[in-house]
Design a protein around this nucleic acid. Structure first.
Lengths: 196, 196
DNA sequence: TCTATAGTGGTACTCAGTTCCAGATGGAAC
DNA sequence: GTTCCATCTGGAACTGAGTACCACTATAGA
């Protein structure tokens, strides 16, 4: 998934390994006992690192769940930045976000097993649901900045990502636990939307 | 604000007083030092109750911030339930939600001082932002149920509240710290939205 | 006035998250 | 290989949120 430049220092490879160990240990334990019944100490122990190290790699217990998603969505934002036209109307902005949103869905459901595990975990844990929406707010915020830089009006720049998010959330709900259905559901939601 | 039935038992009146004391103490302290630098023990002490009692009244430290909002928005949902037509199209559903959303804004900004204090508090505290969005998700969920009961399709029932929320969020961002501007901003956002 | 019941607050606990520090380790220079 | 520096590690000790338990008190109702 990540492209390795030649001559990766030993130190960085080691850190990468530790990060993966922690994520692996965490997801195993969450699957076994559920998020609430796993302590950070448990994760650290199974990953064979100190508790302190866990917090150095992931700011808090929740973050370990979202580490992957971060990378995927960063990529989407990058792609979106390149594609958005100058001074877009709301309709144009929404149309470009539709493409980006469908792309997100395809990335996210590329590994259906993992996606479902993630979905189950987040759905059954209120804290994680909260955090998940924080992530999304962060992305809409970044997309809004992109649109402003491209000369969109304040209203367009703010509203377009919010509408896209609304369609995405709707699609996630409607698709339920069928990853295959997600991209089509996104399209269906966007189809209902005709903006000025 | 709340209608008192005659013959309110002493016990209940006392509990009401305690609840108000806690809320008052909490908002005072948050204003003085910021959310993060106030402990639950501090709040309990100023409200002259035990720490245990705080947690009995409000499940956690965050909840005390949102106690009022809960009541206001419950009212809106009640109102919405009464007004929604049978088998609404997406356009109809959105139009009714526009009215409900404007009403929310008017209620919320009825006391501008309080609204601004609340806004500042939530904006500067990530945890509270998270929790706030959870509340909203709860409302969209309830509105979706209402719409389903009224015979709306799954897509309409799910999408309409999400779109309304998108407009609301957009309006809050655009209005910034000017409570007066909020209802107009909501209308402006909805005006951009033409649905099938 | 008496009694069942519900609310109160204190104590002690678990766990998340932070701070500090001493020791280990990789990288670079010689 | 040796030395030195910067960085990473994990342990210890701490704060604060949230929970469980329990003895005490005050209210409602007879």
């Amino acid at each position: 998934m990540t492209v390795m430049p030649d001559r990766v220092p030993l130190r960085e490879r080691k850190q990468q390994r530790v990060r993966e160990q922690i994520i692996k240990a965490a997801f195993e334990l969450f699957a076994e006992r559920g998020y609430a019944h796993v302590t950070v100490a448990d994760i650290a122990e199974r990953a064979e690192v100190g508790r302190t190290t866990f917090f150095r790699y992931f700011g808090d217990k929740q973050e370990v769940v979202f580490y992957d998603e971060q990378a995927i969505l960063d990529g989407i934002i990058e792609r979106h930045r390149a594609l958005t036209p100058e001074r877009p109307t709301l309709a144009e902005a929404v149309e470009h976000l539709r493409a980006a949103t469908v792309a997100i869905c395809e990335d996210v459901t590329a590994d259906p097993e993992r996606y479902l595990a993630y979905l189950r975990l987040v759905n059954e844990t209120p804290e994680l649901r909260d955090r998940s929406t924080r992530k999304f707010a962060l992305y809409t915020g970044t997309l809004t900045e992109n649109l402003r830089e491209r000369g969109a009006t304040d209203l367009v720049a703010t509203l377009a990502p919010q509408l896209a998010l609304a369609c995405f959330n709707t699609a996630v709900q409607l698709a339920g636990d069928d990853p295959e259905a997600l991209p089509r559901a996104v399209d269906a939601a966007f189809d209902e939307l005709t903006v000025r």
